[in-house]
Simulated scan of single mutants.
Amino acid sequence: MKFGTIVFPGSNCDRDMAMVTSQLLNQPTRMIWHQDTDLSDIDVVILPGGFSYGDYLRCGAIARFSPIMNSVLEHAKQGKFVLGICNGFQVLTEVGLLPGALARNRDLHFICDRVPLRVERTDVSWTQGYGKRDIITLPLAHGEGRYYADENTLKALEDNGQVLFRYCSAMGEIDDASNPNGSLNNIAGIINKQGNILGMMPHPERASDPVLGETDGMKIFEGLLALTAMG
């Protein structure tokens, strides 16, 4: 399985992501400059965290117009995998590959922390390595991570089972006290209806290396490899 990490001006988690896919997973990995357009050799496109274009105007709002994004749209249309993490999630909502938007955090402060998440589904490739309702811990670092959608969109997400991760307490409780940024329904990560596109604010790549003592994020990537092995 070949991974491609998109590099926008201002991306700062691209090398972290490439280290996971190339060194920890031992998979071919290509860094793709935002002005390139060829994704023909890529199985999984990753939009990493950071501050694309300095987050001027609005997070992800300028990156959506990069030349590479038309190719990402086509890649997704073909049913291939797309993963957007933090700023990458913001870009996916801006370009319309995922519904909703990411707004300023509830308390208007940048958050840098490690938080518990509850895994809501395990019947999709991204989370098949977890157990349903598993509680995992992932780092997060953002100033605009509050997930928002209108009432109808939110209902559709819930009805279709598109919420993969929710912010929760250490015991798995979903409440305001365990919601770090004010996201509606404690949403931390969602997929599209087909399940090939995942956007999430927490950083699984920062919890994948055993050297760091945290590996809860690795199963997201291993789930994709397991799918390939089965195929």
Rank of each mutant, 00 (worst) to 15 (best):
H142L: 01
C13V: 10
P9W: 02
S22T: 11
Q78H: 12
S125V: 15
T127Y: 09
C86V: 03
A63C: 05
R15F: 08
Q90N: 00
Y147C: 04
L102A: 02
A101Q: 13
Q128W: 02
L83E: 06
K219I: 07
I220C: 01
L224I: 11
A207M: 02
L227F: 12
I85A: 05
R166Q: 09
Q194A: 14
N160M: 10
L57D: 09
F89E: 00
C59I: 07
M19T: 15
Y167W: 13
V45P: 06
P48S: 12
R15E: 13
G182I: 05
L184G: 06
L92I: 06
P48M: 14
H142G: 02
H109C: 14
D36A: 11
E214M: 10
N185L: 10
L83Q: 08
I174A: 02
D36V: 05
N192A: 04
L24H: 01
N186I: 08
L212T: 15
G129D: 04
H203T: 08
N70D: 13
I6H: 03
D175V: 09
Q128S: 12
Y148S: 13
S208H: 02
Q128C: 09
S71Y: 11
I85S: 08
M17T: 13
A63D: 00
I197G: 05
R133P: 08
L102E: 01
P116D: 05
K155L: 10
N196F: 01
A103M: 14
R30D: 12
N26Q: 14
R30P: 04
D209W: 09
I6S: 03
N196T: 01
G79L: 09
L39A: 03
D107W: 09
D159K: 15
G217P: 00
S208K: 02
L198K: 03
L39M: 05
E74T: 14
H34D: 11
S40I: 04
L184I: 10
T29S: 07
N160W: 05
N105F: 00
N105Y: 00
G49P: 09
G195M: 06
L212E: 12
V115F: 09
D41N: 11
D209N: 15
F89I: 01
R121K: 13
S183R: 00
G145R: 05
Q23D: 13
K80D: 09
L92V: 06
H109G: 11
M31V: 09
P67A: 10
L140C: 08
P48E: 12
M19S: 15
K155W: 02
N152E: 15
L227H: 12
P204A: 09
M17S: 12
V44L: 07
G145K: 02
I111V: 14
Y167C: 08
I135D: 01
G199V: 06
T215M: 06
T153A: 11
V91P: 00
E144F: 04
S178P: 00
F51W: 07
I62C: 02
T21R: 06
A188R: 06
N192T: 08
S178L: 03
T21D: 07
N181K: 05
A103R: 15
I6L: 08
L25V: 03
N186S: 09
T37E: 11
N160C: 10
G217F: 06
I190A: 04
V91I: 13
